[in-house]
């Protein structure tokens, strides 16, 4: 897979890598047993620090999504942990968005709120 790094979002680069792998696994672009690009490949292609890639892969490993295999790289695990129940959260969010819009907030306001809340917690 190919990573896309956006330096202007303010989201830390390793978080972007983690999110993109998660999403690729979720959408099936990465299947169990697929190899992730090596840190060198990612570094060469995106110009980001390979240590950042290692850090993202370690995080994914801790989350049980991928596993390193001695000498051959990092692979998507055959048996993935159950995905958190997103559906519930999505339902709550859409209800909240409805209420916010009804209260007169616009899309920009909502994004700013969300970004601020996330920044407080994730940093």
């Amino acid at each position: 897979m190919i990573f896309r790094i956006d330096r202007r979002t303010g989201t830390a680069v390793y978080v972007q890598l983690v999110q993109q792998v998660r999403q690729a696994v979720r959408t099936g672009r990465l299947a169990p047993g697929d190899r992730l690009p090596t840190a060198r490949e990612v570094a060469e292609h995106t110009g980001i620090n390979p240590n950042t890639v290692f850090r993202a892969y370690r995080e994914l490993e801790t989350a049980g999504l991928v596993e390193p295999r001695q000498g051959s790289g990092t692979f998507v695990r055959e048996r993935l942990p159950p995905v958190a129940d997103v559906a519930d959260l999505r339902r709550e969010l859409s209800a909240w968005v409805d209420r916010a819009l009804a209260a007169g907030l616009d899309a920009g306001d909502l994004q700013a709120f969300l970004a601020e809340e996330v920044r407080h917690r994730v940093g």
Binding site: R7, R40, A43, E44, T46, P50
Partner: peptide, 30 residues
């Protein structure tokens, strides 16, 4: 940037890079 970071990944090179544009090195430097 890609060339330098690939070098760091492959060889573990220690890099000290002077610049006055912070954005230029964002994502490269730790």
């Amino acid at each position: 940037a890609g060339t330098l970071m690939a070098e760091v990944a492959a060889e573990g090179t220690t890099v000290l890079l002077a610049t006055h544009v912070v954005a230029e090195v964002d994502g490269m430097c730790d």
